[in-house]
Design a protein around this nucleic acid. Sequence first.
DNA 1: CATCAGATAGACAGATCTGTCTATCGTTAC
DNA 2: GTAACGATAGACAGATCTGTCTATCTGATG
Lengths: 198, 198
Amino acid sequence: MSTTAPVRPSAARERILETAFALFYAHGIRAVGVDRIIAESDVAKATFYKHFPAKDDLVVAYLDKVDGVWTGQLHEAAAAAGPDPAAQLVGLFDALRASCRREGYRGCAFINAAAESQPGTAVHDRTVAHKTAVLSWVHELAERAGARDPGALARTLTLLLDGGLASGSLDASPDAPDAAKASARALVDVATRTDGRG
Amino acid sequence: MSTTAPVRPSAARERILETAFALFYAHGIRAVGVDRIIAESDVAKATFYKHFPAKDDLVVAYLDKVDGVWTGQLHEAAAAAGPDPAAQLVGLFDALRASCRREGYRGCAFINAAAESQPGTAVHDRTVAHKTAVLSWVHELAERAGARDPGALARTLTLLLDGGLASGSLDASPDAPDAAKASARALVDVATRTDGRG
DNA sequence: CATCAGATAGACAGATCTGTCTATCGTTAC
DNA sequence: GTAACGATAGACAGATCTGTCTATCTGATG
């Protein structure tokens, strides 16, 4: 029993973060007060402010958590497409489809957070950092796929991805992710063709 | 002088809407209180609530205004590309580039509003209505361009557009709109090619 | 047993938010 | 001139928000 003691990142903190994860995403950041998070995570107010001195600290931690989850899904979807980098560039769009189909889907948490924050703040910076990381990961994939212009291909694919994420919650029809994937396939194909007909 | 009397949509109302337009877009909807709008538009509180019984009514009017402006820019950019519908489908992306370059650009007002509202509310519905209208306009253009699958092409192009709008404010580099336009050209080309090689 | 860190409950302060209400002032129309 | 209307200034209510603080409890470690 005492074996797992050293690794205990505070159950209360974990509960707060879990509650914030659900509430911030479902209702927006400003719409959810710390009082509600405190109540729903069964935590004392002093405990909350001990772990997160200000609400924005919690928001950044929330974005860190979303980053971990979403990046993981992206990588898994890419890996599931097999070893070929070009196929992975297409396969990652399966993560988009899965997300959009999820109950309570409400768009990209980062774009949403950016909509509620100002440039120069820690929250906004965290959003930019996430988008930059995704772009550079796709870029690397595009390079390994042998794209003629990996930068342009990566840019286009992330645009499609962001568009799908953003409009996925504004659109009843579920064909947006499919359209995104189909276009991604066409664009990857054109960008990696070697016969010069691209 | 009495000639223009019948058409006087209240100067105070216009001032309120103008102020809301600037503040809501720059700071987000929840971040701007009605008190601030009242103060900066030099209007009495009773006047404000006479024209907009609740804040949400002003938000919807704000989105109406944005819709008018943005749709106009979109149509103008398309028209500037000439009479060919296929060229217009590509040309409309010039509106994206112009928007992203504008000082104080902070993404798509509709996506931002959706991030701060709940499905089922008037504000959220207004956002969906805008996106639907843009999609059907692009769809019509795609049909006139003779696309094999106008629905798929329209969907893809609006995804690119939304992606550009959403990430335009999260990205220091200004090449996103150019990449979107280049991809749009490639996709339109493939979708309207008649030699069956698409 | 003693100590100390982390958690708890909740009062409190100060700001801010939406929305209501009263009382007054000009201007226009009849 | 007078009635009606739009606008003004600003007090007010009631809720909610972030953040602080005190006092107490619990459980593990020395």
